[in-house]
Design a binder for these strands. Structure first.
Length: 415
DNA sequence: TGTCCACAGGAAATACGGGGGT
DNA sequence: ACCCCCGTATTTCCTGTGGACA
């Protein structure tokens, strides 16, 4: 009898969820789950709303010479994460390639994605793989050999070759060798007209480049500004239409999310994440997405950020955080200073198998925690009793508890 | 008014670790 | 397998400093 009750209850709940469901297709709330073509389709709609018009125009005028058989200079794209650099360029290059094909101009493009840092060798190896010029190596093949394979593969191609190098500043080590290859050596050895497109989120990446490369590198520059609130509204509307059922939102929700996202970063991904979280909350609550839910979602995302931050932080930083939490609790609200925290930290190190750092290094850890605003530091002078950093934790109690738990788990696994 | 505390935080030295070359 | 080199993390050393207190 129990069992049937439970079954009935579950069935009823599922019915209820289906009936009240506000999410139509949750994949459109998370870019990771979309395939490239769908991402580009979403992007196209965004462009249709006249977002990024200026940038598209710039791109067009930069690349237009190709259609006349001319050779445009290289291009550097700057913009923070979530400003749509990658997708915009990919979209544009695909379009351009189609146009070239229609006009009988030989042109192809390749996207070298360096979104995770890697050394020069692996970056070139990746490119070679993309071009089907080589398999993946970890060692046993020289840089020179890798370069020759890339050259060999491209040698036969006589048209226009646009190479889109995403997040260039992620090339660790031998950045100069990497750039020299593309800027000076490669163009000399292949027939094709090589057009390099660099994307980066740091404005100053060419600064520490070999001056000889820099002087050779003739660049056109294009800056992707962060989206403003109006752009974000367009972007969100498109997502809402694809992902949610009609009338799922209370009025003002889109405007609010756009305003919140443009206030802190102008990052479209964050805006969509906020929309997604709000929708999940609404679905769980069985209601429409309300302004209050948006606030709630924002604080949940905030909380998650802190937790992810601490969970993925190095052990020493976690230990420092644990020490601060423990001292604060012991002090019952009174402010802590560096010495207190360091004492606690030393004791914590004894209990675990963590090698204690020097006081100096610990101070740096505290500064880092302060930067992440996991703690707040203020330097005060106590007169003859010296100077000190007053350390406080200004996070919700509940969050502090969760952080503490996360760190404890980390150390149990650890030692 | 000058002293002097107790730490802040910069600079240089040193240890460490991972990858490349032989 | 071994060594070397280089970038990063950490330590060592040091100078600077605001203001309570004598």
């Amino acid at each position: 009898m129990e069992a049937t009750n439970v079954k009935a209850k579950i069935a009823q709940q599922i019915q209820h969820m289906l009936h009240n469901s506000i999410i139509k297709d949750r994949r459109f709330l998370d870019d990771e789950q979309l395939i490239r073509a769908e991402q580009l389709a979403v992007l196209e709609e965004i462009f249709n709303a006249n977002v990024r018009d200026a940038e598209i125009k710039e791109l067009s005028s930069h690349f237009a010479p190709i259609l006349r058989g001319d050779h445009p200079v290289h291009l550097a794209i700057w913009g923070k994460t979530g400003t749509g650099k990658t997708l915009t360029i990919l979209y544009f290059l695909a379009l351009l390639q189609a146009m070239c094909k229609a006009k009988g101009v030989a042109m192809k493009h390749t996207h070298l994605d360096l979104s995770t840092p890697r050394p020069c060798f692996r970056a070139l190896n990746d490119l070679a793989c993309l071009l089907n010029a080589s398999k993946r190596y970890t060692k046993g093949i020289s840089l020179e050999e890798m370069m020759q394979r890339i050259e060999g593969k491209l040698a036969r191609f006589g048209g226009c070759f646009a190479l889109f190098i995403d997040e260039v500043d992620n090339v660790r080590r031998d950045r100069d060798a990497f750039m020299t290859f593309f800027v000076r050596r490669l163009p000399q050895r292949i027939k094709a007209k090589l057009i390099l497109v660099f994307a980066s989120n740091r404005l100053d990446w060419p600064a520490d480049l070999d001056p000889r490369v820099k002087s050779f590198l003739k660049l056109n520059e294009l800056i992707f500004e962060p989206y403003d609130a109006v752009d974000l509204q367009h972007i969100l509307r498109i997502r809402v239409e694809k992902a949610l059922r009609p009338k799922a939102l209370k009025p003002g929700v889109i405007e609010k999310i756009a305003a919140m996202a443009s206030r802190d970063h102008g990052d479209a991904r964050e805006a969509v994440a906020l929309l997604a979280r709000s929708a999940y909350l609404a679905e769980k609550a069985g209601s429409k997405v309300t302004l209050n839910l948006v606030d709630e979602a924002a604080s949940e995302l905030d909380r998650d950020r802190y937790l992810i931050l601490i969970r993925t932080a190095p052990s020493q930083l976690q230990a420092a955080m644990a020490a601060v939490i423990e001292s604060c609790q012991k002090a019952k609200g009174a402010p802590i200073d560096t010495a207190d925290a360091y004492d606690t930290y030393r004791r914590l190190c004894n209990r675990t198998s963590l090698g204690p750092l020097s006081g100096r290094a610990f101070r740096d850890l505290l500064t880092e925690l302060d930067m992440y605003s996991l703690v707040h530091c203020r330097v005060i002078s106590r007169g003859r009793r010296g100077r000190a950093r007053e350390i406080t934790i200004e996070l919700p109690e509940e969050l502090v508890g969760k952080i503490r738990q996360a760190i404890l788990m980390h150390f149990e696994l650890w030692g």
